[in-house]
Design a binder for these strands. Structure first.
Length: 896
RNA sequence: GGGCGCUUAGCUCAGUUGGUUAGAGCGUCUCGCUUACACCGAGAAGGUCGGGGGUUCGAGUCCCUCAGCGCCCACCA
């Protein structure tokens, strides 16, 4: 019986069903599992840790691309027989999640402060439980073949223990310290943020010039420029360049802080640029990173003039209580009135803003926890330099080096509530710190029970940095950790190379003494179809869920995977997705065709038919494809591999072989049997190759194919097939065999001939339904033409009965249009349509083309090329020359 | 200021050990409902591969240089 399949591929009814089938079948789990009986430690594992999405996040194109890529890597290795594990999970995303819950509270008319820490955390956990399944179900929809039984969350019990362990170890090694330092303070979020979380943006602003009056009442002054006048309130010096003649006389004298009257020294420091501004620099060590350095060099006071809300504090005298921007205006106005202002100039500033909150970040001195990063960075640097870790594409290695070579200590404390609390307790009696793996009951130093835990939590990236091993059970030496760690690839976006990848490498080396993965694959950003960054304000955001609704998951995945290169941004256009939806449909219909034909095979013949030229050709092409795909996969060129498969399937298999197979099937018997077998085998392998790209449609067709074969005389073809494609064996490449080149060359010649006939027909407007008679003169290829005459006739719409094939012609047929393809001459009797003059002109043009090619090749072959180029390259050119010569000769004969 | 990337057909992009007539999808034009598919088929038009120089028998591909665009890092008040 034949299977009745719908005319168009219906992804809607397929995807969910297939995914459920995979998951229920346990195919996402490693086939060799250290937690199960029968485990074989010698089977090689392949492991990816998912970049954990924010637990309450919403699917965006960034997720879509990483899931597509990682699922491709995972499916490929699974089919290759590795014990393949993709560990899923989510990140608690400290600031992002806390902000969302705070917003919810505001809507409820309350606030984080009002309900208190304990209640707030309760509410946040509730929120987490409510939304956590949301993002993971969206990830599933993309086809992600993760082992969901191993799903982890950065704040679950095990991972929290890992965080605690990591902190304590660093603390005990003296690699963690606490102290007042100049950090980036986000007044909106009321927390410190790391350097990486600050974004600089060019914005129009003002450069303010004013007078720093000498304190001696002489009326003399130093002109100074600043972009942030309010920080005058925190000035503790004025600096000039030591060799600046204008100001040397002031060095060592005192000047008076405007409106406050505080006296501060004039110092000399080479940091000051003589040619910028006035050449004199006000020094605010409490609110500027460079001034902080200078302050340290000169032993200046570190004065803070802002509080946590970025309001002026008691050090601001009359300005205390004002917001920083109000203070700026008021102070400047007052200075103007006092005659201290020189002028204002428009000036483009680089404004530091909080990546999350968006408000202007203030450098402030604050007590924070830091990781002494230098020793960790050194190891991280080495791991890539010595090749333990390879970064793809390679040029990101330089970026990585540059960052690690200039890295600053990492501020890991955040003044948030949602996160891993810092495991340090302060003693009210002896004042010392207790850092412990388990919550202590008493001070480790004096035994006092009057201890209190540090209120801060850790930077989210601290826990993410442990992800590849914490998710496998570390610090416990679990079977998973022993077998699956280190992981294999780390696939993620280049935008988090520093945030995440570098920190995972450093943490992995520090805590497990191994690189956490051997390969880092970085993908680019997904942009809109014109290469613009997607943003809500621009309104060009593409929602992957909508795209999947409209075109199917496979179409989205294929689009993201094909036509992109490692590390390069990808433009996502719906046109492309649509085209790939069409490709899925092409697969579907080719599959239908094959399945229908399998159904027409009545019995297994005693003697199978020999392969036709087309059979040989498609098989040779397929083998070449397998080789190419393997090579491209090894080089991480997934996009090119996908393109090659697409071209093969559509261009070779569907457009040519399927059309030829129609004819072969009608011959019935052994011919039909062999043809159906070839159709099935090529389809099978194509689906296997394509499965990592478009898992749903391939699985669905493959299932139908397998069933159809099993119910047919071709059942033995499926003898070693598993029940589902997802675990079918990956096609292994083999060396090309001798016959492949010859068969391919013959077939290509026929393709050229058929195309030439079609072309001429189109030019002359011959209706497709009109079957033309033709005379073919084949020379050395006469045998080939005779053998393939039925195929040629079918594909070129010739009349098989009117087809004459000869080795050579004494006279050119009358009233015919002539085509010459190397040794083959084709005459089409288009009497009424042929204008002899136009025909001569057309042939003349073709002759000229051939002759110019001959001239080009003869020149080439008589140059140094013939001596210096490799023999096969030269041979190829000689062959071309021979064909052109033959063509030219034939055309000449016809023109005379 | 330092570093990196990009510039190929009207649009969006492939093109990785340099091989000699540069590819795809979309768009455009002409035909066609040929028993898998109109989410299709056949055919066509369209590019001096940003400019200049160099290496080489040979350069879209390697080197230098210029221009434009983009990104990252640093942050001269």
């Amino acid at each position: 019986m034949t299977h009745e399949l719908p005319k168009a591929y219906d992804f809607k009814s397929t995807e969910q069903r297939i995914y459920a089938m995979w998951e229920a079948g346990g195919y996402f789990k490693p086939h060799n599992d250290p937690t199960k009986p029968g485990f074989d430690p010698n089977v090689e594992p392949f492991v990816i840790s998912i970049p954990p999405p924010n637990v309450t996040g919403e699917l965006h194109t960034g997720h879509a691309i990483f899931v597509s890529l990682e699922d491709l890597m995972i499916r490929y290795h699974r089919m290759k027989g590795y014990a393949t594990l993709w560990v899923p999970g989510t990140d608690h995303a400290g600031i992002a999640t806390q902000l969302m819950v705070e917003r919810m509270l505001v809507r409820e008319g309350t606030s984080r402060e009002q309900i208190g820490r304990e209640k707030f955390l309760e509410r946040t956990w509730e929120w987490k439980h409510k939304y956590a399944g949301h993002i993971t179900s969206q990830i599933r929809r993309l086809g992600a073949s993760c082992d969901w039984d191993r799903e982890r969350f950065t704040m679950d019990e095990g991972l929290s223990r890992a965080v605690r362990e990591a902190f304590v170890r660093l603390y005990e090694k003296g690699l963690i310290y606490r102290g007042p330092r100049l950090i980036n303070w986000s007044p909106g979020l009321k927390t410190a943020v790391s350097d990486l979380e600050v974004i600089y943006a060019e914005e129009p602003g003002t450069l303010y010039f004013f007078k720093y009056m000498l304190a001696d009442g002489s009326g003399d002054f130093i002109p100074v420029a600043t972009t942030r006048p309010e920080t005058i309130l925190g000035d503790t010096a004025v600096a000039v360049h030591p060799e600046d003649e204008r100001y040397q006389k002031f060095v060592g004298r005192m000047v008076s802080v405007p409106m406050l009257g505080r006296e501060i020294p004039v110092i000399a420091d080479e940091y000051v640029a003589r040619d910028f501004g006035t050449g004199a620099l006000k020094i605010t060590p409490g609110h500027d990173p460079n001034d902080y350095e200078i302050g340290h060099r000169h032993g200046l006071a570190m004065l803070s003039m802002l509080d946590k809300n970025a309001r002026v504090n008691e050090n601001g005298g009359p300005y205390a209580g004002l917001d920083r921007f109000e203070a700026r205006k008021k102070l400047w106005d007052d200075m103007k009135a006092a005659g201290l202002v020189i002028r204002e100039e428009p000036y483009t500033l680089n404004v530091p803003r909080s990546e999350r909150g968006g408000e202007i970040v203030e450098p402030m001195i604050s007590e924070q926890w830091f990781v002494r990063i230098a020793p960790l960075a050194e190891k991280g640097l080495m791991a890539v330099k010595n090749g333990d870790i390879k970064i793809v594409p390679e040029h990101f290695e330089k970026v990585y080096y540059n960052w690690l070579e200039n890295i600053q200590d990492w501020c890991i404390s955040r003044q948030l509530w949602w996160g891993h609390r810092i495991p340090v307790w302060y003693c009210a009696d002896c004042g010392k710190q207790t850092c412990a793996r388990e919550d202590p009951a008493a001070c480790a130093h004096c035994g006092s029970t009057r201890i209190e835990q540090d209120p801060d939590v850790l930077d989210t990236w601290f826990s993410s940095g442990l992800w590849p091993f914490s998710t496998l059970g570390w610090p416990e030496q679990t079977p998973d950790l022993k077998y699956f760690y280190p992981t294999s690839y780390m696939e993620t976006g280049y935008d988090i190379l520093f945030f995440w990848v570098a920190r995972m490498i450093m943490s992995g080396l520090e805590f497990t003494e191994q690189a956490p993965f051997h390969t880092v694959y970085l993908h680019g950003l997904v942009r809109d179809e014109h290469g613009q960054k997607m943003s809500k304000t621009k309104g060009n955001v593409v929602d992957p869920l909508t795209v999947m609704d409209d075109f199917g998951t496979d179409a989205l995945r294929f689009t993201l995977l094909v036509g992109s290169t490692p590390g390069k941004d990808t433009n996502l256009s719906l046109k492309k997705v649509e085209a790939n939806r069409n490709f899925a449909n092409k697969l579907w219909n080719a599959g239908r065709f094959v399945i229908t034909n399998i159904g027409q095979v009545e019995e297994k013949p005693a003697q199978p038919a020999d392969w036709t030229l087309a059979d040989s050709w498609i098989w040779a092409r397929l083998q070449q494809l397998i080789r190419d795909v393997e090579r491209l996969f090894q080089n991480f060129q997934y996009g090119q591999a996908g393109q090659n498969i697409y071209d093969f399937f559509w261009g070779d298999f569907a457009d040519w072989y399927l059309e030829i197979a129609k004819g072969q099937m009608t011959e019935g018997g052994a011919r039909a049997y062999t043809t159906a077998k070839t159709l099935a085998r090529v389809l099978d392998i194509s689906l296997r190759l394509l499965h990592p790209f478009t898992p749903f449609v391939t699985e669905e067709i493959w299932g139908h194919l397998r069933r159809a074969l099993r119910e047919s005389p071709l059942a033995d073809l499926t003898a070693d097939w598993p029940e589902v494609l997802i675990i079918a064996r990956w096609p292994e490449p083999r060396e090309p065999e001798g016959w492949e080149a010859d068969k391919t060359a013959d077939f290509t010649l026929l393709q050229d001939a058929i195309r030439a006939i079609r072309n001429l027909r189109a030019e002359k407007n011959v209706p497709p339904a009109k079957k033309l008679a033709a005379t073919l003169s084949g020379g050395a290829k006469t045998g080939l033409l005779r053998e393939q005459s039925a195929m040629i006739a079918a594909l070129a719409a010739l009349d098989p009965a009117g087809l004459t094939i000869v080795e050579s012609l004494a006279d050119k047929p009358e009233n015919s249009a002539a085509l010459v393809i190397g040794p083959v001459e084709i005459f089409l009797p288009l009497a009424e349509m042929v204008d002899p003059e136009a025909e001569r002109a057309r042939l003349g043009k073709e002759l000229a083309d051939a002759e110019s090619q001959i001239a080009r090749l003869e020149k080439l072959l008589s140059s140094d090329f013939a001596n210096k180029a490799p023999a096969p390259v030269v041979a190829k050119e000689r062959e071309k020359l021979a064909i052109y010569k033959e063509t030219a000769e034939k055309i000449n004969a016809q023109l005379n």
